[in-house]
Simulated scan of single mutants.
Amino acid sequence: MTNTKVAVIYYSSTGTNHKMAVWAAEAAKETGAEVKLVKIPESAPDSAIDSNPAWRAHVEATKDVPEVTLSDLEWADAYIFSIPTRFGNVPGQVKQFIDTAGGLWAQGKTVNKVVSAMSSAQNAHGGQEQTILSLYTTMHHWGAIVVAPGYADPSSYAAGGNPYGTSVTVPKPGEMNEDVEEAVKFQAKRTATVAQWVKAGKEAN
C-alpha cells in the first residue's frame, strides 16, 4: 500500500492554530504518513492586520509556509484543519478557500477524504465547538469521513474535553489556558490511522 497522505491545513492570525498545526503535522508523520503543512491565504486588509502587532508579527514569521491549493485537497487522503473561531463560525479566510473547491466537489474528488478539525477562541465559551461543527457541516456535503477524537484518549480530558476536536482558550496571543499538545497529537495520529484503514480498504477493492 502506498503511504497515506495527510494535508494539515491551518489559518492563524496570531500563531495559536499554526502551533497546533505544527504539532499535528509532527504526530501524523510518526504514523508513517506523508504530510504537507499548508496555510490558508490571508485575505484581510493591511489596515486590519496592522491594528494588531501580534497579527502582523505572525504574518511575517510564517511568510515562507506554503499556501494551500486545490491540488493539495486532491492529493491528500486526509485533512486536518486548525482554525480559530470568528463570531462562533469559521473565519472568512477559511470560507473563501473552501468556496473555491466546488469544482473538486462536483467531480467527486472530496468523497471519502478523512477529516478532523481543531479550533481556538479567546473565551472558554467563545464558539470553539460550533466552529468545528460548522466546518464538519461542509465536510458532510463533501462526502468526507469525519474522525473526531471523542474521549478515546485521556489527553482529551486534560485539554478541556472537547469531543468534536481539540480546542484551546487563548486570552492573549501566545497564552494557552489548556494543555492541548498531547490531545492535538492524539487527534492527528487517530486521523492518519483511520485514513490508512480507509485507503487500505479502497485499494483492496
Rank of each mutant, 00 (worst) to 15 (best):
N123W: 15
A200S: 13
M20H: 10
F186H: 14
G143M: 01
A61K: 13
G127M: 08
A54M: 10
F186T: 05
F81I: 01
S82G: 06
A148D: 01
L70I: 11
T85G: 12
S12Y: 06
V38Q: 12
G102N: 06
E60Q: 14
E30M: 12
L133N: 07
M20N: 08
A106F: 14
T14G: 04
S71W: 11
M139A: 10
T69C: 05
A48H: 12
T62K: 08
P41V: 07
K5Q: 11
S167V: 00
G103L: 07
G92C: 09
P53A: 11
V8I: 03
N52C: 12
E67G: 02
T166Y: 09
H141W: 09
N162F: 09
V68H: 09
P41G: 12
S82Q: 05
V94W: 06
N162M: 08
H18K: 13
A192H: 01
E182W: 09
H140R: 14
E26N: 10
A101C: 15
S167G: 07
E60L: 14
Q187M: 15
I49M: 06
T16C: 07
P163K: 05
W197L: 14
A57R: 14
P154T: 05
G108W: 09
A76K: 03
N205T: 10
A200T: 13
G103K: 12
L135K: 07
Q130I: 11
T193M: 12
S119A: 15
K189S: 03
V111N: 10
K29H: 06
S47G: 01
G160T: 01
K39L: 07
V114E: 06
A28R: 04
G92Q: 10
G102T: 02
K63A: 15
G88S: 02
T169S: 04
A28M: 00
T169G: 02
A27L: 08
A195P: 04
G160Q: 04
A44I: 02
W142F: 15
Y10D: 01
D77I: 01
S116D: 05
G15C: 09
Q196C: 06
A25L: 02
V8D: 03
S119T: 08
P163V: 00
A144R: 08
K39R: 15
V65H: 05
E67K: 10
H125L: 13
A78M: 03
Y151A: 05
K63Y: 08
K39Q: 14
S134K: 09
V198D: 05
I98G: 06
L135T: 00
V114K: 11
Q196A: 15
A204M: 13
L73C: 14
K5I: 03
F81M: 08
T14D: 00
T2V: 12
W55H: 13
V111R: 15
Y79V: 07
V114R: 11
Y151G: 03
P53K: 14
S119W: 08
A192P: 00
V6N: 03
A148L: 00
M20R: 06
V194T: 14
G88C: 05
S156K: 07
A24E: 01
A195K: 10
L37P: 00
V114I: 11
E182H: 13
K202G: 08
G92P: 05
A33I: 07
V38C: 11
K109S: 00
V198H: 11
A121K: 00
